[in-house]
Each structure stands twice: as C-alpha cells, then as structure tokens.
Design a protein around this nucleic acid. Structure first.
Lengths: 123, 123
DNA sequence: CCTACCTCTGACGTTAATGTCAGGTTCCTA
DNA sequence: TAGGAACCTGACATTAACGTCAGAGGTAGG
C-alpha cells in the first residue's frame, strides 16, 4: 500500500511515517518512481512504534530494541536496556495509578461538594 | 524554606520551580530582598504538579484543576475536564500495560533464545 | 489526455518544559 | 567584614516528534 493508506489505517500522520523511516524505525519498498510501498505487516510495526513512544521510549532506544521485539532475540546489552525500560514502564504505571486516585478523590469530592452547594473558588 | 532546599527535597530543579511559579502553579512568599520562601506544604504541591505532568496534562490544564485538586471542589466545567483527563489517564495505563506485555514477551523470548544459543541480529 | 489528488524532498516552524549563561544582589559563616 | 554559596531576573538554547509549506513529479479515473 502507499503511505497515505498506511497513515489512514494506523491513525498516524504521513509526516510521522516519513519521520519513522528517517529514524530507521520503519522500512519501505520504493516504486520505480520513488514512492514508498508498504506490506500489510507495516501496520503492526507502526502500532508497535507508537506503543513504545507512548511508554516514553526515545527513537534511539526503540531503534535498538525493535529488531529484538520483532524477532524475540536480544543481545545481552540490549536485554539490560529492555529490563531498564520495563521497570521504567512499571513505575510509570504506578505513578499514573496514583494520579488516578488523586483525580478520583477530586471528582468524588467535587460532586459531593456540589451536592452540598459549595462552589469552586475562581482560582 | 528557600528555593534550593525545596528543589533538593523534591528532586525538581530550581529552574523548574521558577517555571512553575511563572505558570501560576506554585506560589511563594518573598523575603524583603525578593527571595522566594516556601512553606512545608509546597513539597506536596510540587509532587502533585509533577504527578499531573507525568500524566501528560499541560500546564494550562493543571492551572485550571489545581485549586480543585487541593480544595476538592470543582466547578462543572472543570469537572468535565477532570473526567476527560481521568479517562485519558485510564487509557494511558492500559496502553502501558500492553507495552509491558510486549516487553515481557521479548525479555522472556530473548532469554530463551539465548539459552538455546541464538544471537540477536545486529540490526 | 486532463484533472484532481497523492507523493516526493528539503527546509523551516512549533511546543513544552526545562537547561544554561550573564551580570548583579543577598545570605551566612568564619 | 570578607568571601563563597545561593539567589535574582532576563534571555537565548535545547530536544523530540512532529506540522506545514514550497515546488516538482506521479497516478488513476473519466
């Protein structure tokens, strides 16, 4: 498929896809005229990249880990990084869960406060 | 306490603390000579700010929500935003958990592969 | 073959949360 | 009271992951 279709099917912008290629994260075949062509599996690859980005992992780190994530095989140094990222992700999850509690506390409290008629201060 | 101490006790840089103030997120008393002075509760406030930042919430949104998070009272429009952020945080957690699964799969797979002696491809 | 839409490269713009530097003032301890 | 550490404001630098634009070429349906 061409880049526009991949963009649409993954929900990622065309610009972002070209950026991924620039970073070495996403390969493409080229047509004679130089247009990018992708296989079906590119969709999974793009989703994976986005997932790793969402975990706060940089392009450079993703570049290191990607082949291993795909093949399931990692060199020891990469393993170390993987484990590091793993614990970082665990930590992020824990922190977000705490944040969630905070938000819930506010939402519950605010609802109740409104039931009792106490307004929110302007600032 | 002065800004340096607050920075050290929260693990946040002095520059960041001044930035928080600039954004209206963190108030300070000023000494006669103009130096910032903070109460003990500033520590909790800074931690809270960092937590919200970690949840991907912008300064502007934090500014809106902060008084409500502190007082537990929110105006209806803020409530709407709070609920929006809540679900965004839930989504982030879910995505991170998926990422964690991916990473675990790789780590487990890689360990096994290494046990069987198959190396990681260079790229 | 025409036309509207898609794609290309290259380059500069954007945003948010800081880092960093300069040049000057304040604080505290010996 | 001296001097180094900590603080001030102001301003420009940075980084990552894109957005956006220009100018040129490719593609597919009618």
């Amino acid at each position: 498929m061409r880049i526009g279709e991949l963009a649409e099917r993954t929900g990622v912008s065309v610009r972002a896809l070209r950026y991924y290629e620039e970073q070495g994260l996403l390969a493409s075949q080229r047509s004679e005229s130089g247009q990018r062509r992708y296989e079906e599996n590119a969709i999974g690859r793009v989703r994976l990249i986005q997932q790793l980005y969402a975990a706060g992992i940089s392009s450079a780190s993703i570049l290191e880990m990607l082949p291993c994530v795909v093949t399931g095989v990692a060199a020891p140094q990469v393993m170390t990084k993987l484990i590091g990222h793993r614990s970082s992700v665990v930590k992020q999850i824990e922190e977000l869960q705490e944040t969630l509690l905070q938000l819930d506390r506010v939402i519950a409290g605010a609802t109740e406060a409104y039931a009792t008629g106490k307004p929110c201060p302007p600032q």
